[in-house]
Design a protein around this nucleic acid. Structure first.
Lengths: 251, 251
DNA sequence: TGTTTTCAGGTTGTATACAGGCTGAATACG
DNA sequence: CGTATTCAGCCTGTATACAACCTGAAAACA
């Protein structure tokens, strides 16, 4: 836990939102729990207004569920919810790649993303040689996916994808940490990086259908990681937001 | 305008949200306009708190844009934004159709959607015979699309699609009214209804790829309507939220 | 004993007061 | 005359008071 002392320059609302999200993701608030405003006022050290705002935002984010009669509860997720979220991300990233190919990406954008690709190559190489470069890889991976979406030059799509990725386990780097423990880690890493390269090639060659198919399949690497992660407890706990997951058949 | 007097049973927040949305969609607030809370308090007859809440909600909805230093402005949209929004909807509905096919829809669900299909057949027939059944068609069309998405049995996808459709011109029935003026109206209506039937057939036959392709192409009917609507002023004004559209090259 | 009613506690929705920050215009200065 | 500075007005973010509502439990009644 890096930041127990929250920066005071942040607005109270943002402070509350971050703190509340942590509380949920760390499992200090369990799925189904009703969240009342007043207790949170004490717990977060801000007044009701920012707490209220944070609750609304987190509901939009998908972590909370509104109760018809007022108030919120912590949402719970099934294994299938995660699979679906990953599939949705893959589908939208596929659309982004296709649009990028069809509309044509500018030369400078392609150079930028190829630079990113090269950096990732280095990191992947070091990782395969036995180092532990996952933090660096996660960051580069996030940057790559962001740049890719931008290639589509579609604000609507960026917006939609932002939402698709808010759930912690839906993001492109959610399962990279799990991957470290995976027996087939080398394969997934190598194949994933090849996807990255191929999709850029496809976009440059204006091969829309191919670019789309690659990104869809690319997202399914995350599904594979997920399936593995669910198999034993240690890897299960590596899943971001694992506390929100209910395994087959509970309330 | 059916409801100039807003139901007093609604909460102030909802009241404010509806009124504010109308104000924006009707063009009484122009794109780029900054929306201050106090003037809205006078204009909507509710206090700052509900106004504030409505603003946050409308930002999430995509009608407003947050100013970094605080406050909101009315968003503006380009022709391409709409095309992209339609493409996104088509892509997600395609995913829904594919999942429905792959996962298998229950017999009773298929019966229900076929009932809806049959009702639409009747309406389409009457329409082609010279009647004006568009309101009925719009409602049935909305119901069909809703049922289709439900067939995928994916809460995540339902959620994502709900968001994709919040923009008024992205919804499946946004351009049906324009269609009435379209020279090729008969064709679009006939083909659209055929899409509806074919996608259900595909789902029942577990033909995922076909179901997906059909829904993608189905959404492109809306793009066709849009392209036509943009050509002259009368049809342009039929576009929901037309006031938010900026034609090529303005601030 | 089972059902209905009543009531108290807590919770949310709404209104409003207050403080800090931003904006834009007028003014002073180079 | 152009640029930097100051200041007033407004606006948002936050805190808090108040009221309506819902919930759950105890009590009264059939």
């Amino acid at each position: 836990m890096p930041d127990k002392e929250v920066d005071r320059s942040l607005s109270q609302t943002v402070k509350a939102q971050l703190a509340l999200r942590d509380l949920i993701l760390n499992g200090e608030l369990s799925p189904g729990d009703r969240i009342s405003e007043l207790p949170m006022v004490d717990r977060l050290g801000v007044s009701r207004t920012p707490v209220r705002m944070a609750l609304v935002r987190l509901e939009e984010e998908g972590l909370l569920e509104a109760i018809p009669s007022g108030g919120f509860t912590v949402k719970s997720f099934t294994e299938r919810d995660i699979f679906d979220a990953i599939e949705i991300r893959g589908t939208l990233e596929g659309l982004a790649a296709r649009l990028a190919a069809e509309r044509g990406a500018s030369g400078s954008d392609l150079v930028s993303i190829r630079d990113c690709l090269a950096e990732m190559d280095t990191v992947v190489e070091q990782q395969l040689a036995g180092g532990n470069c996952f933090p660096a890889y996660v960051e580069l991976n996030a940057r790559f996916h962001e740049m890719l979406v931008d290639l589509a030059q579609s604000p609507s799509l960026v917006r939609q994808l932002e939402r698709a990725v808010t759930l912690p386990f839906a993001s492109s780097s959610a399962f990279v940490m799990v991957q470290a423990e995976l027996p087939e880690a080398r394969i997934v890493l190598t194949v994933g990086q090849d996807h990255h390269r191929c999709v850029v090639d496809a976009i440059e060659a204006r091969e829309g259908a191919r670019a789309e198919a690659i990104m869809r399949e690319h997202a399914r690497l995350a599904s594979r990681n997920l399936r593995f992660a669910l198999r034993n407890q240690e890897t299960f706990d590596l899943i971001p937001g694992a506390a929100l997951l209910r395994r087959r058949g509970r309330t």
